[in-house]
Amino acid sequence: MVGTETAQAVFHTRGLTRVFRMGEVEIHALRGVDMDLYPGEFVVLLGASGSGKSTLLNILGGLDAGTSGEVWYRGKDLSHASEKVLTDFRRYHVGFVFQFYNLIPSLTARENVAIVTDIARDPMTPEEALELVSLTERMDHFPAQMSGGEQQRVAIARAIAKKPEVLLCDEPTGALDSKTGIKVLEVLLDINRRLGTTTAVITHNAVISDIANRTIRLSDGRVSEVIDNPNPVTTDQLHW
């Protein structure tokens, strides 16, 4: 089944569904998603709340498994992977950035990055990663001593320090004001350009798709539209 196209794609899903059983109610979060992500691209997964975008991202990141359908990562089948394979997958290949940063409050910025580089293969140093997000000055501060934007940049540094092949960002600007949000997006774009990391950002904010190479719109658990954007704008032209 591994065709040229699938081999090329970083992620490749076919007929992916996810059904949650809440007591006696079944919620169809994904109703057959066919999607490919290609190396080095910056993709925005756009959708309203309840469209299934977070569910999709969780399955791509190895946090959850689909109910049926296929999920391939670089020719490896994730849909039937063991707990150990998924842990290794997250550990070595994926960088995560979350809406609520999920930093460890008891560790400084540098240590929050180090907690990932300690267990990665051939990572950059925490200092290098923090320099990429321009936080060299704040390296020894604890999360409680930093603003939301700074915390999110630490989270990005933590995600990229292992030099992952993909960066999965779940509403990275969701908890930030627009000015700070734009700054965070700029960091993500910069990383994408400099390191060539395939980046998927999920958001309900349509404006963000202007900076992406491609926008995949999700509604009601299906891909409703794929828009190529040959001329992405720079972040200074964004506002919301």
Binding site: T87, D88, R91, Y92, V94, N102, I119
Partner: peptide, 16 residues
């Protein structure tokens, strides 16, 4: 729990 779950997401094993 949240902190520990975050670490699991980042690729930490159960033992870690």
């Amino acid at each position: 729990g949240r902190e520990l779950a975050s670490l699991r997401v980042l690729g930490f094993t159960r033992a870690e």
